[in-house]
Amino acid sequence: MKKLFAKHNNWFFKAGFILTTVMVFIVLLGQVWTPYDPNAMDASVKAQGPTLRHLLGTDFFGRDILSRILEGAGATLQIAFFVVLIGAVLGTVIGALTGYFGGVVDEVLMRICDAITAFPSVLLALIAIAVIGPGRLNVIMVLGCVFIPSFARIVRAEFVRIKRLNYISLARLQGVGDFRIMLKHILPNTLPTLLPAISIGFNNAVLAEASMSFLGVGVSASEVSLGRMLSDSQNYILRGLPWYAVFVGLTIALLILGFSLLAEGLQQRR
């Protein structure tokens, strides 16, 4: 951690780190404590704007929007986390193997990656969800798979570059085996490229979940997520109650702003 700060002593990194930490902390806090039960209805406070009792107002059912945003953001971040985990881990494994060994498998896998990335990722995910049905787990699996190629490509390029360097030739002469070279000698050197990619991955995953749930093919109707809420909030705009959409939109914006700043900061040295 200290090393990261020393290496990326720039404002993008600091701002991104602070914003992301604060947002994640608030969302995590929301998992154990919310001002109100996110599902508790209160007929006396239906569809209100921000008040002292309900800081971000209430919806048509009198549910507290702050509490619901906390819960929804929790779901969105959870989805994003597993999507990035699947994409980054499998992408790294595939990129490392193909980049290091090359050959026919490399050719085939990279053409498949090209084919997948030729489509917009949300479109691809939409088609897949249309086939296997909505729901949190399905969204995670589909988006996770859609995210694999971009990570695979980045990691592959790094492995191709680094495996030719002199210190890798020397490790081989010293008798270090292929898998140990990949894991202990090359992988740590891909981190300067991989960390920003992971940060951008979070950014894209939050957006992808929001887009999909907004279009009604994300989490199921009974669940809350930021995308789901953004979709619901349209009805409020039509009835002259814009604050619901504003607060949900702001939450999404702050989350992805944090991740983007972090990615930018990680890419810049100093």
Binding site: L165, N166, Y167, S169, L170, A171, L173, Q174, G175, H185, P188, N189, L191
Partner: peptide, 16 residues
């Protein structure tokens, strides 16, 4: 296990 010493001392040690 014959060993090698390279000309360029900047690329022969793992920077990480």
């Amino acid at each position: 296990r014959p060993q090698l010493i390279f000309q360029d001392p900047y690329t022969s040690l793992n920077p990480a």
